[in-house]
């Protein structure tokens, strides 16, 4: 599947274009190498051949981009490397799909929890984020429904709803079927408290949801 790098010949009807090289300026070269080191670090979980080939391909891209800017007459090598890097983007962002694919595949094959977690992490930031956030919000909204139910049910089953203190010291806030021996400590204060909790949670969650939607890329 993976083609051995650098083994190709120049045969074939390929338009050679102008030669693309590496910058000569020391600062420009440092920027260039730092970027590729960074990409290599981001891709460290990929199989060695795949990682090396990917970095070589990004290096090739930088060289072409750098040369193209040179043809337009820009002599400042540092500026050209900077521009090439800016247009290519941060490897941490654009390599995510590859990393997620690879880690999830390996994790699923080996039951390795760390690989799965890392894969999910990359997926979260690569698109699944919305899904996972939605689940979190769904759980929050279920809590709201529970608070509202407490406020409503207090009237009908007062001894099963509220802040229940058991003789052994256990304390529970909520709705319980078995309250044998427990003492309900709040009385009808449960109603405004539960309603206030529901309102605060609702407003907070909704504001949070709004914020995540605004910043979703």
């Amino acid at each position: 599947m993976i083609h051995r790098p650098l083994s190709g010949s120049t045969e074939g009807a390929v338009d050679q274009g102008s030669p693309a090289g590496v910058p000569r300026d020391a600062d420009a070269l440092r920027l260039w190498n730092d970027y590729l080191d960074d990409a290599s670090r981001v891709a460290r979980r990929l199989p060695e051949t795949e990682r090396r080939e990917l970095v070589l391909e990004l290096r090739s891209h930088l060289a072409e981009s750098f040369a193209a800017a040179g043809e337009l007459g820009d002599a400042d090598e540092v500026a050209r490397v900077r521009a090439a890097i800016a247009r290519l983007g941060s490897p941490r962002d654009f390599l995510r799909p590859i990393l997620a694919d690879h880690l999830l595949e390996r994790g699923a094959n080996t039951f390795h929890p760390r690989l799965l977690a890392e894969g999910l992490y990359h997926n979260v930031f690569g698109g699944l984020k919305a899904g996972i956030i939605s689940v979190a919000f769904a759980v929050g909204y279920v809590l709201i429904i529970m608070f509202a139910a407490m406020a409503l049910l207090k009237e009908f089953v007062p001894n099963h709803v509220g802040y229940l203190v058991y003789p052994n010291g256990t304390r529970t806030f909520g709705i319980l079927a078995d309250t044998t021996g427990a003492r309900e400590a709040l009385g009808y204060w449960v109603v405004p408290l539960a309603l206030a909790a529901a309102t605060v949670l609702y407003v907070t969650l909704t504001l949070g949801l709004r914020a995540t939607r605004r910043f979703r890329g």
Partner: peptide, 12 residues
């Protein structure tokens, strides 16, 4: 496939 280039940086 990788192709060697005169500038020294190959293309894929």
């Amino acid at each position: 496939r990788w192709v060697e280039m005169p500038g020294g940086v190959p293309r894929k």
